[in-house]
Simulated assay, not measured.
Amino acid sequence: MILKFDIQESIKGIWEKLGGWLDTLILNLPNFLLAIIVFIAFIFIARYAGKLFDRVFRKQIKQDSIRLMAVKVLKAIIILIGFFIALGLLNLDKVLTSVLAGAGVVGLAIGLALQGTLNNTFSGVILSFLPELQIGDWVETNGYAGSVTEINLRNIVIKQSDNNYVVIPNSKIVEEPFKNFTRTARSRIFVNCGVGYESNLEMVEKLTLETIRDNFPQRGNEEVEFMYTGFGDSSINYVVRFWADVTKNRDILVAQHKAIIEIKKAYDAQGVNIPFPIRTIDFKNSLNLNKE
């Protein structure tokens, strides 16, 4: 009899527990359905937001890998927001707190383990929105010069003038200065030269300025500048500065090449001497053989 009574009490306790669970489920059923609807709605919002931002990013980011990664990150953030809101509707505050704490710990561990990789990744996202650096630009950075052929989430790839490729981590580009020739259509060219000490300096200045102006038309406020810089061992040295169309390093070399040829032609026609280094050796007869 005692055993039968214990079984009945156990069954009664189970039914009461199940009844309590059923009552709780019925009471929370509206919130549960609302949480599901909210979460599904955020999934659809993330999908359409991803398409919208993909169109926007397509105009700003030329590199497909960075654009797709940015869209995926955005969609994941929207879905996570919907997940947390759904948990809040279910009154699972403790679960939400535990999830956030766990996510923080996991995120910290991953961040420490992938510190260098994440640095390059975030630097790649920054570079993708940086108007001063685009695919096809000719840049000088970290001791290398070339055309940018690729920008991804880890590095940029530069094709040098010798047809070799250089891979540079994104963090190096963000932290170090770089020079972009393509961002400006015109740049100033410097040509250094020297003339003999017997030259008419005023005539040389006038001749050089006329030669450069005839071969390199200046625009707007641009002008050709000529300045003597010092007395050399065999010549009086000067620098002439002028503007030309430059979008890469080769354009500078081409402009200097043309300027040197034209200046040499003009000097030859007017008899202006461009001296080469001269060494004078003075022999003194300190030994007099005829001395008594």
Rank of each mutant, 00 (worst) to 15 (best):
A255Y: 05
L100A: 09
E175H: 07
I156S: 01
E292T: 05
L3K: 11
Y197M: 07
F276D: 06
A103K: 00
F42E: 02
I261F: 12
A255T: 12
L209T: 14
N237K: 14
Q60E: 13
I2R: 10
N273I: 15
L87W: 03
L207A: 09
A145T: 14
G19E: 11
F42G: 02
R58V: 10
V174I: 13
I40G: 01
I278D: 10
V167C: 01
Y48R: 11
L25M: 13
D162N: 15
V191N: 02
Q160M: 13
E225Q: 11
I7A: 09
R188L: 10
F53Q: 11
S147R: 15
N215L: 03
L27D: 12
S123Y: 07
F216M: 08
P177F: 03
L100S: 09
W138H: 14
I36A: 12
T24M: 09
F53P: 02
T229H: 04
I281T: 08
W21C: 00
D137P: 02
K51A: 02
I189F: 04
N192Q: 13
I37C: 05
N192P: 03
N192R: 12
Q256F: 08
I77C: 06
M69I: 07
V239R: 15
A49Y: 13
L201P: 03
A101Q: 06
E9C: 00
W243T: 06
I263E: 04
W15Y: 14
D137G: 02
E225G: 00
I43N: 09
A46I: 05
T182C: 01
R154F: 04
L96F: 09
I37E: 06
E132P: 00
A113C: 03
K75E: 14
I156C: 02
Y197Q: 03
C193R: 13
F42H: 05
F283G: 00
S65I: 09
L289Q: 06
V71P: 10
R47N: 08
I263D: 05
F84Y: 11
R154C: 00
I85T: 02
G13V: 10
F84H: 04
F44S: 13
G196W: 12
G230I: 08
L289K: 06
L118A: 01
P30I: 08
L209M: 14
G230L: 09
I281E: 11
S171Q: 10
L89D: 02
P217A: 05
D23M: 08
S161W: 05
L118P: 02
L253V: 15
I43E: 05
I77Y: 07
Q63N: 13
K159R: 15
L133M: 11
N290Y: 13
E262R: 08
P131W: 12
